[in-house]
Design a protein around this nucleic acid. Structure first.
Lengths: 153, 153
DNA sequence: GTTGATGCAAAGCATTTGCAATATC
DNA sequence: GATATTGCAAATGCTTTGCATCAAC
């Protein structure tokens, strides 16, 4: 779970981005971001929309998308695309990096870090004359929980 | 470049799949597959559609999609999704595996293999109690050619 | 009072699907 | 002749956009 007090940097960076770009602080943006920060780590637009509507706010889905795109532009969230066509958004903490492991059965997303893999990736890129800017490593499989359920049947 | 004579296994596997599933051999499928095999290694539906139409065949885009999905179901092609929303299809040779490096400037896709990375992935999955079924590793960056062009300006 | 933001409905885009006509087995 | 396939247009699912209204600066 995320402690909201840790997230001051998020709001600060957002404020900085808004004023730098001459964008406005609005009630909708505040509400959407508040709920985004409280939701699970990996969220899609529809999740966020349902949550916000469920709490009684009359905010359109387009505004959810526009706000998530704003956060992406401010480099505050990362946008992923795992199994289906949906975009998944995740808070991006400066200076951190991790990859993802997705369970094909329950859809749970686990994060992991592996420096050795990172080093090897850089080496591969270098060997091929590539100047690496980013990468994406997703592992797909069955998580322990689902695996146990399967074997009990 | 691909030597077509190497691809007998592809046609054989396809024939086997068709008869096993009680599907029919049609002119459209033949034409689409022939052109798919002659095109670049990484192809999207629109590429294939344009190529086939350009050669004078009156085949609908839906049939292209249906055929590519058929090949996917027959385990003869892999479906990727790199930068944009398009699906990219690639011949899948049995017993081979590689990952991809994509140039953000010219879009060129280079393949690479790295056994050490594969081993580390299995280890990571195991450490997290995951039964690994597949993975996706894409590196993004600037290829040598584009990098040289940039520095000359 | 300017300028950007919102909500809604409409448009986009890649892909899939329903259906009547047609080709394959 | 039964059944799968095709082409087309319409539908889909996610996301973006146009525009008139509204809120923030």
């Amino acid at each position: 779970m995320e402690d909201n007090s840790d997230l001051q940097w998020f709001w600060d960076t957002l404020d900085a981005h808004l004023s730098r770009q001459q964008l406005k602080q609005t009630k909708q943006r505040k509400v959407i971001v508040e709920h985004f920060l409280r939701l699970a780590r990996h969220v899609d637009a529809e999740d966020l929309y349902r949550r916000v509507r469920g709490k009684g706010f009359k905010i359109g889905l387009a505004t959810i998308y526009r706000t998530l795109n704003l956060l992406r532009d401010a480099d505050l969230v990362t946008q992923h695309s795992f199994t289906d066509g949906r975009a998944i958004f995740e808070i991006k903490r400066p200076g951190t990096h991790h990859d993802h492991m997705v369970c094909s059965l329950c859809g749970i997303i686990q994060e992991f870090e592996n420096d050795q893999i990172e080093v090897l990736q850089s080496k591969v890129a270098e060997d091929h004359g590539f100047t690496l800017t980013s990468h994406r490593l997703d592992l797909f499989g069955v998580c322990r929980g689902c695996h146990n359920e399967q074997s009990q049947q």
